[in-house]
């Protein structure tokens, strides 16, 4: 008993009180900022170097759906590319993930892309079934962390559940391996409508480094409406929670 009291005393208060404005370390790489003065040579050079193929050859814009946040562009062209530690990088449209040169505002989800029933039905309670389809276990662990004692997204009624029958939607991680494609379809079909689809991490959004692999089969992603994109490699728990809160307008 005394030991337990000691643990509790040491533990103190661990929960993050304000999930919207929790500071993270300076080096954390979130939303990039690209100089509006980027030259076409610089854009070309960055695009040729970018290991994820996330940078547009002509404009130098960065697609967060492909970006692995490796920081190599910022190291190669300091002053042109820079990563802020802003973790609020969710989007409701795929094209909104492209950060253009000179764009320095926070990313906001496009409200017009949010289906009305999502907020009407799920605002007070959103239960999700997670499906890892070739995920490397880092996004999965961050999603687990989103419900832990620090981030505690359960306070908003957002939770992962075991059965798709109990879920209001699915959260996909990984590039969707061909060997997992059928199980993903079955899980989605087993979830009652209306339901949401959320993609977490670069692998899920674009295939990431595995986009060209013959072992990946992305038909499911291509054939369904995606409600929310949450970039990262892996996506930070705060990216996930803030993105879902924006979707639900919490």
């Amino acid at each position: 008993m005394l030991k337990e009291i000691k643990i509790l005393a040491d533990h103190g208060k661990q929960f993050v009180p304000d999930l919207r404005n929790q500071p993270v370390s300076a080096r954390f790489r979130g939303r990039p900022v690209i100089s509006e003065d980027i030259t076409s040579e610089q854009a070309e050079k960055a695009a040729a170097m970018c290991p994820a193929g996330a940078i547009d050859r002509r404009s130098g814009a960065t697609d967060l759906g492909r970006c692995t946040f490796c920081n190599e562009c910022a190291l190669m062209l300091p002053g042109v590319y820079r990563f802020t530690n802003d973790y609020r990088i969710a989007a409701t449209r795929r094209e909104s993930l492209v950060v253009k040169p000179g764009q320095s505002d926070q990313l906001r989800i496009d409200e017009t892309a949010v289906r009305k029933e999502i907020r009407r039905l799920f605002r007070r309670s959103l239960k999700l079934r997670q499906v890892s389809a070739g995920g490397d276990n880092s996004c999965e662990m961050e999603l687990g962390a989103a419900g832990n004692v620090n981030f505690d997204m359960g306070r908003y009624g957002i939770e992962f559940v075991a059965s798709p029958r109990h879920a209001d939607g699915i959260v996909i991680t990984g590039p969707v391996s061909a060997n997992m494609a059928e199980a993903l379809e079955i899980c989605y079909d087993a979830t009652p409508s209306p339901k949401v689809i959320i993609l977490v991490g670069t692998d899920a959004i674009s295939g990431g480094l595995f986009a060209g692999s013959p072992a990946v089969k992305r038909n499911f992603i291509e054939n369904h409406h995606i409600d929310l994109y949450l970039p990262g490699n892996p996506a930070h728990p705060l990216t996930f929670i803030n993105g879902v809160m924006d979707l639900l307008k919490l």
């Binding site: 070739g134 990984g174 391996s177 997992m180 595995f210 060209g212 692999s213 072992a215």
Partner: peptide, 9 residues
């Protein structure tokens, strides 16, 4: 289920 073809890549 998780096979992504890493060795080939």
């Amino acid at each position: 289920y998780q096979h992504r073809g890493i060795e080939k890549l």
